[in-house]
Every structure is written in C-alpha cells, then in structure tokens.
Amino acid sequence: MDCSYFRARINHYVDGELGYLETAELQGHLSFCADCAEELAQMSEVRGAMATWGRTELAPPPGFAERVAAAAALEPKPGEATVGRVVGDALDALDDTLGRIPLPGGRTIPVKNVLGYGLAAAAVLIQVERYLRRARELKPL
C-alpha cells in the first residue's frame, strides 16, 4: 500500500491541524497500517521527550548572575533617557503601531526596516546626486 498520502498528514495530525474528516480518514488508516502507526508513535515519543527537555532547567556557568549584575551596573539607570534608548523606544513603538508588511511568498518585514532601508537609499541617492553635480561643475569646457 502507498502510505505517502497518510505519512504527509501525520505531522499535521500531531499539530492538531487536520479537519474532522481528514482525522477520521487517518485514524482509519492507522488502525490497520502498522508502519504508519509506528511512525506516529515514534514521532509522539520524540515530541514528548522534547517537551520534557523543555521543562528541564540548565544551570548557567558559576558566577553568571554576578557578571550580569556587574554589566547592569555599567548601564544607565533603567528609566534614564539616553539617545540610544529614545531611538530604540521610538523604533519599538513604530513596530507596535505599524506592524509588518506582507511580502510575496508569505514573508513579512517590519515597517521600521522598510523605513530604515528607505532612509539609507535616500542618503545614497543624495550622495550620488552631489557627486554627479560636482562632476558636471568640474567638467572642462
């Protein structure tokens, strides 16, 4: 039997993305196909192990908290306005307000990146235009 149709659906099944009919169809197949049932069982075991691993907390190297605290002590106070923070907060606010622009192929790009690229392109164009104007001015008669 060609199981590829059902195997392609096992991932969607474990993600809970199959509809009622597709689920019933897959479960019917699993009830008599030992290979596909085994694949599902193994995948469930791996996902279970990963979830357990995700609940396991690793201890960082000794002295980590002290190093972080020392680095924090060198920072301006959290509420203090610095140029970097003001710009960063403004960009974050832009991100929250404007969101992301959808691109072809399902990708998205933050609006602030588009604005950044636009500003960079404008700066380059201004420099090129200056260069060309200067070259025209210096052109021998």
């Binding site: 396991t56 690793l58 201890a59 972080v68 605290a69 924090a72 002590a73």
Partner: peptide, 27 residues
C-alpha cells in the same frame, strides 16, 4: 527597586530566573 537602578535587587531577579533564560538560549 530594580527598575530604579538598584543592582542588588536586579541581581536577585537574575538569580531566580537565570536557569530559565539560560536554558532558552542554550536550546
């Protein structure tokens, strides 16, 4: 206190959550 720049108060927070943050970064 931590938001007010008290590094000792911030360090207490780091000590409490360092395992979680480090595990996320490692994974």
């Amino acid at each position: 206190r931590a938001a007010d720049g008290e590094v000792e108060a911030f360090k207490t927070i780091v000590e409490r959550y360092q395992g979680m943050v480090y595990s996320v970064a490692y994974n």
